[in-house]
Simulated assay, not measured.
Amino acid sequence: MSLSQNQIFRTLLGVALFAVLLLGYQPSAEANRTCPDAKLFSQKLITDVCWSCLFPIRIMGASLGGGNVPSGASNQALCLCHDNLGVPEPGMGVGYWEPARLVEVVRQAGCAPSLMGTTLPGASRRFQGTPGAGEDDISDHGFYHYHYYAFPLLLMLDLFTPGGCMSDGMMDFDIMYLSELDPTWNNDQLAFFTNPEAAAVANLPAQSACMIDAAYTATGNVNNAMWWCAGAWGSLYPLSGKVPTTGFANMTSLSSAKAIGALHRRGLAQRT
């Protein structure tokens, strides 16, 4: 090959590489199946958010829009917020349902679709999850890992909320908890020692009462008296990753409810 031909070849190769970089790298289908990218930070931040769920919005004690106001919500017209120097500044009371946390439920240990399909280091395949089989035996239970993120959506999008009035101090998207690092999540016996009140509801009458809770929540009401029930999803206890095989949506929803319950039980999810 002559020198001029070699230069032409290098030029064409450089153009081809530049075109590949310009178009962007697309992961293979096999990689997507292993740990898919949820494309969280895309147009989904706008299109996949239930914006109507923010209502009712309360301003100075007056409600705007339909929806349920949680018990214990402030109805004060005026309030005080402290600035960076700790000096109180007067303001008006505003309240609404704010997207504050994101719970990610996965079967593959360490897989983080919300982090662009990243596989977190240190995860062992011995803790791999399973959807269960539903064959009237021990396989009637599934197991999922969860990742708990700070997700102050309105603050991230610079909507409505001034940073100085954040109740929990979380200002951006961040990892808060990984079930792969929690030995109680894949062991019911260990989970019992962190929440021994499970013994009080580990009986047929208490579990049967969850049918009442399911009927109550189906009407759109909240029943705080049956704290061990998660509506039609099932029982919150034990606070571990094992869930009955009642369908993918129910299983992942119950796993998320268990995760939130376990974190609140340990004092790690306050003010949400």
Rank of each mutant, 00 (worst) to 15 (best):
P27M: 08
Y25N: 10
V69F: 00
N224K: 05
P238L: 10
P162R: 15
T34H: 14
I260V: 14
R126L: 03
P121T: 00
V20E: 06
L178G: 00
V222Y: 15
G163C: 05
Q76M: 13
Q128C: 00
Y237K: 00
W185I: 02
L22E: 07
A206N: 10
L64P: 00
T47N: 13
N195F: 09
H141P: 05
G65Y: 06
I57P: 01
Y25M: 04
A232F: 03
L254V: 05
A225G: 08
R266L: 06
T11C: 04
V69E: 11
D213F: 07
P244R: 14
F9H: 08
L154R: 13
T252F: 03
T130R: 09
G86C: 05
P131E: 12
T47H: 13
A230Q: 13
N250T: 00
L120Y: 00
D140K: 15
N250W: 06
V105I: 10
Q76A: 11
I212D: 03
H147N: 11
A62P: 02
T118L: 11
L85W: 12
T272L: 08
V49H: 04
L159E: 09
F41R: 08
Q207V: 08
T47Q: 13
A109Y: 03
D140P: 04
T119K: 13
G66C: 00
P162D: 11
A112G: 01
R266N: 12
D213L: 07
T219I: 07
F173A: 04
K258V: 00
G234F: 06
T47S: 15
W228V: 02
L254D: 02
L254A: 09
R266W: 01
E98W: 06
I175F: 08
P88W: 14
